[in-house]
Design a protein around this nucleic acid. Structure first.
Length: 564
DNA sequence: CTCCATTGCGCG
DNA sequence: AAAGCGCGCAATGGAG
């Protein structure tokens, strides 16, 4: 059963039951914002699927009232998928002109809170039926597509992801500011005021200045630093660490150390801590579908780039544990399943996939296996990776053929589609124009070269899209399944009935192919079991009976730094 | 002053 | 442009 939720201009909530085809079925109710959570809670036992425009805007209303829902359909996210998918290209939704559903949402939080806003205009222009019509179009597009089952799974997974994202932002990641502060002080020296360098950093800056003989040099200025390096005879064209690493000169060691610590200070220093850690929790804003391939993005706080350096500050509460799980070699396993390459799937059965490739005699070392695989999925042509590719192609012809086919499609400007139906965007007009230019009778050699290089570039994008995007789908299904099973977990032993989320295991972090669950210590074993079985379930959802393993590394720890 | 591109580096 | 995908963010410095 569907329950459509729509917000009126004055902040009230309209709820309307819909039939399986998305048509109004029964009478609607008008609720105030305050009444809505209790209403939702009362309906949850019937496991309705809540249909709303934007989970990130409406769900916090429920979360702040302590109410969580099982299932949702996020119209904005699902629209984006169906609009682009080659599987629904001929649907009404696929053929329509751009509408408000195709425009980025205004980033104002809580539109109902203030009086007259842009949102009121929306509501006057787009009443209830606009939302119902959109939902009907989406259901029809799925129903009439060649792969309704896959698309339904994708939309459910995407929407579940939106629920999880809102919940994780709301709950936050346990973060010990005292541990973080101690770590910063150990590395950088005691905290100093804004604009000043901590002691350790200042000393390194002095060493750098002395080594290049420029007492006033600001090591944070790339142009100045580059000039100074050239001045002392170092033939570098940039100040990148990997390039400096190769050189022998007294300035190199302090400079590399400076760069590392300066990065720590600016990216995850005290200022970051003050800004993002509230009451012992890190609350990043996750953006489901924020990356073209379907991966999540984040806004603020750099949650997807938490350096290993500071992970020690992520510590479970007293009496609690962190269960950290990581899908091992996810993308190559996805590739094996996508291409039904049984030899490659076999190489990863019950073991590290790269080790399996070595054991099969394809290459000599795990490092070679890894660099060759990554190269195949990213489109490397030269170097070690390029040299090893033929051996992979011989051992795993189906897998490599799939990546090549995806690349060729991109080079022609065509889109590619993931396992569940997310399609890559088409290249823009400038790309098309450059290609057209190369076919012009008057085209120069340079025109052709430019077109070819640009075509290859887009080919590398589509080549990777199909793997990265399908892996993102697997990860969403995995996490959705974890969430579902966690909620069914009996909370015996915690002295709690289970309605209070403060006492139940819950997801607190997600990083492309890695999840973290914060759980009462007594339930850690059960959580590990759930995380593992959810991976198998996700594999079956995407690939049916195809015999591919999705191996996990799972660790129950007190601190994130202990995982891996 | 604000806006924007560039550089560099963190993550998968 | 590291050799090859996808991101976010901070700092700098030039342009307006």
């Amino acid at each position: 059963m569907y329950l459509l939720v729509n917000r009126t201009g004055n902040g009230d909530i309209l709820v309307l039951p819909l039939d399986p085809d998305g048509r109004a079925a029964g009478t609607g109710r008008r609720l105030t914002k305050q009444e809505f959570p209790a209403y939702a809670l009362a309906r949850e036992p019937g496991l309705p699927r809540w249909v709303w425009e934007d989970t990130s805007r409406i769900y916090p209303l429920l979360l702040t009232a302590g109410v969580r829902v099982h299932r949702a359909h996020d119209l904005r996210l699902c629209h984006a998928i169906l609009r682009q998918s080659s599987l629904t290209r001929s649907s009404t939704l696929g053929r329509a002109e751009d509408s408000r559903w195709d425009r980025a949402p205004a980033s104002e939080p809580d539109p109902g809170a203030s009086g007259s806003t842009l949102f009121d205009l929306f509501d006057d222009a787009d009443d209830e039926s606009g939302v119902i019509d959109e939902f009907e179009r989406q259901l029809a597009a799925v129903r009439n597509s060649a792969e309704p089952g896959r698309l339904r799974l994708l939309l459910a997974a995407e929407s579940a992801g939106a629920l999880i994202a809102a919940e994780m932002q709301f709950t936050g990641l346990p973060w010990r500011t005292d541990v973080h502060d101690a770590l910063l002080t150990r590395e950088l020296g005691p905290r100093v005021g804004p604009g000043l360098r901590p002691e350790r950093l200042e000393r390194l800056a002095d060493s750098i200045r002395a080594a290049v003989g420029e007492p006033r040099l600001n090591p944070d200025s790339h142009p100045d630093l580059l000039r100074a390096l050239n001045q002392v005879g170092l033939r570098v064209t940039s100040t990148r660490a990997w390039e400096l690493q190769e050189l022998a000169h007294p300035v190199i060691e302090p400079l590399l150390e400076y760069k590392k610590l300066a990065r720590l200070l600016s990216a995850n220093g005290w200022y970051w801590m003050d800004t993002w850690i509230v009451d012992g929790r890190f609350h990043p804003e996750y953006i489901p579908g924020g990356v073209v391939t379907g991966r999540w993005a984040t806004r603020g706080g750099g949650a997807l780039q938490l350096p290993k350096q500071v992970r020690g500050a992520v510590v479970a509460d007293a009496g609690w544990k962190l269960v950290v799980a990581d899908a091992a070699q996810l993308e190559p396993r996805i590739l094996a399943a996508l291409s039904a390459d049984t030899a490659m799937a076999a190489a990863g059965r019950g073991t590290d996939l790269y080790a399996g490739i070595v054991a099969g005699g394809v290459v000599e070392s795990r490092d070679h296996a890894k660099v060759a695989m990554l190269g195949a999925m990213y489109g490397a042509t030269s170097g070690e990776s390029g040299r090893l590719l033929p051996r992979l192609a011989k051992a795993f012809p189906r897998a490599i053929a799939l990546t090549e086919t995806a690349a060729r499609a991109g080079e022609r400007g065509e889109s590619v589609t993931t396992r569940l139906g997310r399609s890559s965007p088409h290249p823009d007009e400038r790309w098309q124009a450059t290609q057209a230019q190369a076919y012009d009778p008057g085209a120069t050699e340079a025109d052709e070269r430019r077109a070819r290089s640009q075509a290859r570039e887009w080919g590398r994008f589509t080549r990777n899209f199909i793997v990265q995007g399908s892996a993102a789908e697997w990860a969403l299904c995995w996490m959705a399944e974890i969430r579902r099973e966690l909620r069914m977990l009996p909370l015996a032993g915690t002295g709690d009935s289970g309605s209070e989320f403060d006492h139940a295991p819950h997801l607190v972090f997600f990083l492309h192919d890695e999840v973290m669950v914060h759980t009462p210590a007594v339930l850690a074993g059960a959580v590990e079991e759930i995380v593992r079985s959810a991976a198998d379930t996700a594999g079956r959802h995407l690939f049916g009976d195809f015999p591919v393993d999705f191996l996990l590394t799972v660790a129950t720890v007190d601190s994130y730094a202990e995982a891996k």
